[in-house]
Write a protein that binds this DNA or RNA. Structure first.
Length: 927
RNA sequence: GCGGAUGUGGCGGAAUUGGUAGACGCGCUAGACUUAGGAUCUAGUGCCGCAAGGCGUGGGGGUUCGAGUCCCUUCAUCCGCACCA
């Protein structure tokens, strides 16, 4: 029998489908394990060879866990709302659901061919009303909750109303926008509308005027993580700042828990660090500076509040700076400086956000004429404005300490402002001393203290005199949740008298309406403005925005636990059983978007008792990117003549990308090349001595335009899915980026055929022996079982593939065809190459399927050898290898060594100064 | 600038705790069988050298009987953040 992968793979994929092999249900008799892939956005281009890398790894892990006796949840679905389908709809008029449906079908076909063990009965699609009903449901819950800073968790808004009725809001410590204090009596007197406006400031999903990232080309706002360097991540269009009324989610309320929670997670350090940076918690103090009254400014001079992480350097403050956008700028500028300030403001406004970010070297600023009063020394501090201070961070104002902050130093030098050293340890004539260590000087009551102590003391003194307080500040902003687009979840929100109200849960799902065009209306409303009867039954208008991409992906892992439940997002029973994701595999591009938002949603759902775990993803692994390996041909300039790689340097050539699919081992298939592009049909070639045309290569992004895209379908067509799976793993460590080079695939293909051949004799007949295996055979087997088990556990799947190769090579050399050996080998291979394993498992006479087998136990008896080969080194350099019985002690070995003539040869005449014997490992002789 | 990661043959990579550097595979070289083929099998393959031997994990230094692995320093590449007070 030949190894005909196409028949075998088809056969078993059908078997799995017909027998629902991968369907799982909650089974309390078994321990659970939840393995999740980041679900894909089904794009029109289909999967290339890089996409399934993570899916294959997680599939191997899932199949392995199942063999180890776990009840494994391993689902897949689609992140199906999104911009590309909608952009396509705008261009062609085709409804995005059709595009999406087609793309999903293609993805599914491609995935099915790879032989994944997904339980497709649990599939979710974010654009399915039965699914987004629950996205809308969570939104309603967010709307109905506020965050109590005292308890550190979300609480129902009713409780807040009750407190307002009893005591007003003075005892409430909530995560919220600034809200004026009111008493119970004042609350009672407010109109329904005013009460709602107050509550809106407390809700976890709230409507507010905010500066947003507006992308005119896409006609929508974007979240911070969807903007890269001032351009939209999708499409690369310019993004500008604009004030708009938008829905926001109060992620900032959870900032602390999001940072602290990271410590308990098994995520890699760089990812945790990215999240910490994104959240950007810094501990410091808010300090209030009174202004000295100056001629021409109002009597009730305002107070400037600054945020600083270095309150210890307060006596080093020699001036102050406000962001140009700061609300006090207008108020405090003295008449004398009005004109200069105005022209400075105009100039900064002209520079785009991007220019301001890119150009950090040019120092600009303008004195306002105002002076602030130092809270301790009463010193007069000039107040400047400059765009090096950001309006969006802290309070938009700083106390400048040029001696201990690089930017302040540069500014002070530029405008010739005083620099006063207050922490010893640096040389302030050369530059600022920013380090957080040293002894305080020139600082009155702080003198002599270390920085750490001085920070505490300074805050205590500020609090005592009422000029400041301790404060933790975050870089993280609340997430803007409105998109002025069509292809997304409609908000379950209607407006009464301009005030937003949410629908009742039993009115869900609020289904996305049909529109005749996907463009904004003439009034500039989002596309939903075109929908007919977009009102509640009572006639109240519904929200016109839709939700962003991260809405549907924020709780999808919960829905897989209980996908058909139409009463709850997830039942308590299912959630208690599956708890949370044990292993999550996906790309690093979601580090600050999806992975923050879903942690936030999960924590909220945990607070409200919907889920039992406060973190969604216990262990997370980022698979590396698969890069393309491009091939080049070299055309002699001004001709249609191509010169081979090694000869190209003697000609004046232009390198041109050539389709990697018509190049094998860097040798060009000239016939295919001629057919590839009519332009080359009569091309001429200057060949190598051996008559071949050699191409050059480079590692680049895998992209259509570079002709280096390799599709899994083509590989499967040629080598089969098992080979694809093995080769993707064999390429290198899962987390590392590496180039795809189809050239190497023959190696794993040969391995599979060698494995197959172990079962057949020379005449190609099935030939399995029931004889007892030899110790040698058992040693090979058990060594491999141990290695594979350890490798899979730490996701070192590239090394398991080589372990299999070694094992099969060794068994092949022994012509081993013992059932006891082969049947266990098939089981351990099955997570990697499931199709061939199923076939061999059946040929061994077992009932299908191998997925029901158990992972074989390692017998330690077969792991140890009677003799150990010791490498013997002299002064650390290995010279010879000598066998000693495994039970020999150090002394025995030493004795024998000195008798060994080879050793004596290396010793020459001298006696060894020292002999180091590490039992079972090595001998080192010092001479 | 800050933070993180990575540097090992012609190539992808291995070496899990400081203990034989280069496993496994590709490629290459030679040979065998051959309906000269992008098939299969066998042997070889880090570098220098005819050899003995020497050198070798980005560079330099250190700790150690012994360093790819630990420490210091430096360079390069990639990724993230970036005037964050």
């Amino acid at each position: 029998m030949e190894y005909i992968f196409s028949e075998i793979e088809k056969k078993w994929q059908e078997y799995w489908r017909e027998n629902h092999t991968f369907k799982v249900t909650e089974d309390p008799s078994k321990p659970k394990y939840y393995v999740l892939d980041m679900f894909p956005y089904p794009s029109g281009a289909g999967l290339h060879v890089g996409h399934p890398l993570g899916y294959i790894a997680s599939d191997i892990y899932s199949r392995f866990k199942k063999l180890k006796g776990f009840n494994v949840l391993h689902p897949m679905g689609y992140d199906a709302f999104g911009l590309p389908a909608e952009q396509y709809a705008i261009q062609t008029g085709q409804h995005p659901s059709i595009t999406t449906e087609n793309n999903i079908r293609r993805y599914r076909e491609q995935m099915d061919k790879i032989g994944f063990s997904y339980d497709w009965s649990r599939e979710v699609r974010t654009c399915d009303p039965d699914y987004y009903k629950w996205t809308q449901w969570v939104f309603i819950q967010l709307f109905r909750h506020w965050f109590n800073n005292r308890s550190g968790k979300a609480e129902p808004i009713e409780a807040l109303v009750w407190e307002f009725e009893k005591n007003g809001n003075s005892n409430v410590d909530a995560a919220q926008d600034s809200c004026e204090k009111f008493s119970a009596a004042q609350w009672e007197k407010m109109s329904e509308k005013d009460q709602q406006l107050v509550l809106l400031k407390y809700r976890l999903a709230y409507l507010a005027d905010t500066m947003v990232n507006w992308c005119p080309k896409l006609g929508t706002v974007l979240a911070n993580d969807e903007v890269k360097d001032g351009y939209s991540e999708r499409g690369g269009y310019p993004v500008e700042q604009k004030e708009m009324k938008q829905w926001l989610l109060r992620v900032t309320a959870y900032a602390d828990r999001l940072v602290d929670g990271l410590d308990k997670l098994e995520w890699n350090d760089s990812l945790k660090e990215m999240q910490r940076n994104w959240i950007g918690r810094s501990e410091g103090a808010v300090i209030r500076f009174n202004l000295y009254p100056s001629a021409g400014t109002p009597e009730d001079t305002p107070i400037i509040e600054v945020f600083t992480t270095r309150p210890d350097t307060i006596f080093g403050c020699t001036y102050m700076v406000l962001a140009p956008e700061h609300e006090l700028v207008e108020k405090i500028t003295t008449p004398q400086y009005k004109n200069q300030v105005r022209s400075y403001l105009e100039e900064t406004k002209k520079r785009t956000e991007r220019e301001r970010m890119a150009d950090t070297k040019t120092i600009t600023g303008q004195f306002t004429g105002a002076h602030a009063k130092h809270p301790f020394s009463d010193e007069k501090l000039p107040v400047w404005i400059s765009d090096y201070v950001l309006a969006g961070y802290g309070t938009g104002a700083i106390m400048a300490v040029p001696a201990h902050d690089g930017r302040d130093y540069a500014f002070a030098k530029h405008f010739d402002l005083p620099v006063r050293e207050v922490v010893s340890g640096g040389d302030i004539s050369q530059g600022s001393y920013d380090a957080k260590s040293g002894i305080l000087i020139n600082s009155e009551f702080l003198n002599g203290l270390e920085v750490e102590g001085a920070i505490k003391k300074a805050i205590a003194e500020l609090e005592k005199c009422g000029n400041g307080y301790k404060k933790i500040n975050y870089r993280l902003r609340d997430a803007i949740f409105s998109r002025q687009r069509y292809w997304g979840e409609p908000f379950p929100v209607y407006y009464k008298d301009g005030i937003p109200y949410v629908l009742d849960e039993d009115e869900l799902p609020l289904v996305l309406p049909e529109v005749e065009s996907y463009l904004p209306t003439q009034k500039g409303e989002p596309p939903l403005g075109r929908a007919k009867n977009w009102n509640t039954p009572e006639g109240y208008p519904l929200e016109l925005s839709t939700m962003p991409g991260f809405a549907g992906s924020s709780a999808y892992y919960l829905r897989y636990m209980d996908p058909d439940n139409d009463q709850e997002l997830v039942s308590k029973k299912a959630n208690r059983y599956w708890e949370n994701v044990d292993l999550y595999i996906g790309g690093t591009e979601h580090a600050t978007g999806h992975l923050i938002y879903s942690r936030f949603w999960n924590k909220f759902l945990y607070d409200t008792g919907v889920v039992c775990k406060d973190e969604p993803f216990k262990k997370l692994v980022n698979q590396g990117m698969i890069q393309g390996r491009s091939n080049f041909v070299y055309r002699i300039k001004g001709s249609n003549k191509f010169v081979s790689h090694r000869l190209k340097d003697s000609y004046n050539v232009t390198p041109l990308h050539v389709d990697v699919n018509i190049v094998h081992n860097d040798i060009l298939d000239i016939e295919s090349f001629r057919k590839w592009n009519p332009e080359y049909s009569d091309a001429e070639f200057i060949l190598e001595e051996d008559g071949t045309y050699r191409c050059g290569y480079a590692v680049e992004k895998m992209s259509k335009s570079l002709y280096n895209v390799v599709n899994p379908d083509e590989i499967i067509e040629q080598y089969g899915a098992d080979t694809l799976r093995l080769y993707e793993m064999f390429l290198g460590p899962l987390e590392q980026s590496k180039p795809w080079d189809t050239n190497g695939i023959e190696g794993v293909y040969k391995f599979l055929r060698k494995l197959w051949k172990l079962f057949f004799n020379e005449k190609n007949e099935l030939d399995i022996s029931d004889e007892k295996p030899t110790t040698g055979e058992l040693k090979i087997l058990h060594k491999t079982i141990k290695k594979i088990e350890e490798d899979i556990e730490r996701l070192s799947l590239n090394t398991s593939v080589s372990a299999f190769m070694i094992c099969v090579n060794e068994l092949g050399a022994m012509k081993c065809n013992k059932r006891e050996i082969l049947s266990r080998l098939v089981v351990i291979v099955s997570p990697f190459a499931p199709h061939i394993s199923e076939e061999l498992w059946q040929l061994l006479g077992n009932n299908p399927s191998v997925t029901g087998a158990s992972f074989p136990e390692v017998n330690p008896v077969f792991l140890s050898d009677d003799t150990i080969q010791y490498p013997v080194s002299f002064n650390g350099k290995t010279r010879l290898k000598i066998d000693f019985p495994a039970d020999y002690e150090k002394e025995d070995i030493e004795k024998e060594l000195l008798k060994n003539e080879n050793v004596l040869k290396y010793l020459k005449d001298g006696t060894p100064r020292k002999i180091i014997v590490v039992k079972g490992r090595i001998v080192n002789i010092v001479v």
